[in-house]
Design a binder for these strands. Structure first.
Lengths: 243, 243
DNA sequence: TCAAAAGTGTTTTGATTACACCCATGT
DNA sequence: ACATGGGTGTAATCAAAACACTTTTGA
């Protein structure tokens, strides 16, 4: 440790600015969307970026991330939304002006309220993931990392329910998987696997909802309590992998 | 974003100290061990802690972590060792003196060179994971998080090979799983699963090694190139979970 | 009565388990 | 010879995939 006997070495640490960056995902029209804000000033003025901001003196990165999430989405009940730390980006050159260490988070939203450029951001917009490119700073990389993580976590956690409203149908849940993984799933088998996994979902007795205007009303479910899925819900082998 | 039009708001960020903390694991005598250092000064003087230190002005957290890893273990070929970012701990009260944001890493070592208290640390010691308790700061939590992550990643990545020397036997690899998971595995089945998973291990032609002094010499393998295992090597259901 | 979406059943296929057994080496 | 650890074979069990089929609604 770079510590001298009488306390911290005054030269051992430089002051860093610490920020949070958010990859906020939702599903709209059967496509994964991400919330982007347009930068108003240099560097990268006019470019799109992930929402984020500085840590305040007495808040943790988690608290800062949730605060920013509320400010950017305009949502009031941000407390229940899924928010998870991804990793921290600390490469010296990532901000041209100064040393900024950024803690990245991924957030998942069920519905997609129109973004309204919270606070000082020029504007905010939901963007299809596939068209979100050439972002400011290293946000392309952060966004790609976030997407990978979300896709992987669907396999072995109950994370998919975070994309759904409090009460949802199995068809809606299946659409989450199909959208994020980009593959079609067999409905009967999906249904069986989900219901056979304890703690994944729990039935709302008696409730039902019409989904597509037509068809049989679907039973409703709530997110279960299990964090990890056992057995995992493995995605169909994506080319070249074994069964 | 807490940014004013003409640049960063001078009051929007406080200077933070940024450190890295390392959970360095190895396997000794069929038990998971972690590297701890004894603190020489307040706070927590005399208490054991995870090795770590401050980020230098022009290095990333990853570089700082690898540098610290070399300093604490005394190893010279630290470049090849597995090092992975865990998460960042930023709760305001985690260091009593000042605001310290710490990026935590997990490192995996094949053999266990005796620790020699690198740099200024009072002393360093390999400690069985189960007896590593009452650490300084929030290091109990960091260590527990690290252990959980390692255990989980054995299932769906080739991480276990990071605990093994460059060339290893399947018996040694199996011991890694049994030690980290705390369960016995069926040798024939383990062998088949590992060999059936492409990219997990590759055979070293002709090579063999005696493991326990007795018994048939075992064939040697090298770590494969696959990062993710498909299908995953699921751990036996740990009580109460379904098959 | 048809289309659309939910939900059930069944057959077939493949993976996993739980063993029994053989091989090579040191003592 | 036998203990020890490596390695192979196999029958039984279990889970998953594929797909046919029934149900309930709106148009």
């Amino acid at each position: 440790m770079d510590v001298v006997p009488d306390g911290y070495d005054k030269h051992a640490f430089e002051p860093f600015a610490v920020t949070v960056d958010l990859a906020v995902f939702t599903i709209r029209e059967a496509a994964l969307h991400v919330l982007l804000v347009e930068r108003g000033q240099e560097p990268y003025a006019g470019r799109w970026a992930l929402p984020g901001g500085f840590l305040r003196p007495d808040e943790s990165a988690e608290r800062a991330a949730r605060r920013e999430l509320g400010e950017e989405t305009g949502l009031t009940d941000v407390a229940a939304l899924h928010l998870e730390q991804l990793r921290t980006y600390s490469e010296p050159g990532r901000d041209p002006r100064m040393r900024v260490v950024s803690v990245a988070f991924a957030a998942l939203l069920p519905d997609a309220p129109e973004a309204h450029g919270g606070g000082d951001a020029a504007q905010a917009r939901w963007t299809p993931y596939d068209t979100a490119r050439d972002l400011a700073f290293d946000h392309d990389r952060i966004l790609a990392d976030a997407r990978d993580r979300i896709g992987a976590k669907l396999e072995y956690t109950g994370l998919a329910t975070a994309f759904c409203p409090p009460e949802f149908t199995l068809g809606e849940l299946q659409q989450v998987y199909e959208t994020v993984w980009g593959t079609a799933l067999d409905r009967p088998n999906f249904r069986r696997k989900v219901l056979a996994t304890p703690g994944f979902v729990e039935a709302v007795p008696g409730a039902a909802r019409l989904t597509g205007g037509r068809g049989k009303p679907a039973a409703l479910y709530r997110a279960g309590t299990a964090a990890a899925l056992h057995p995992p819900l493995l995605r169909p082998t994506p080319e070249g992998r074994p069964a």
